[in-house]
Design a protein around this nucleic acid. Sequence first.
DNA 1: AGCGTGACGAACT
DNA 2: TAGTTCGCCACGC
Length: 104
Amino acid sequence: MPTAFQKAVWEALSKIPRGKVTTYGHIARYLGTKAVRAVGTAVGKNPYAPEVPCHRVVPSNGKIGNYSGEGGVERKIALLKEEGVEVKEGKVVRFEELLFRYEK
DNA sequence: AGCGTGACGAACT
DNA sequence: TAGTTCGCCACGC
């Protein structure tokens, strides 16, 4: 049974447009919490992947971060590339340009 | 209620 | 610049 917090996180994920990425920090800010770790925990337990684009979430340093789904990080990178997000040497290329910013 | 863990972030050394 | 420390809080035990 998903908690209200997790549903909120997944809903935020679903707002990310194809070919873009966002960060855990942005999601946390959007949800009104300072605990990005809680967001990471919730995203990691996403049972709807890849229906919910959890692979479009990366750390604020522009790297890929982690992925609990099938194939791990490599799979995450493959999914991003298919959407037009370039990934080189474990990090997102032109990260700031591809960064999706939530509206308040 | 307390403790450890976690797909992180920012500050500090 | 890299590595460490602390903070954050949801969740399971």
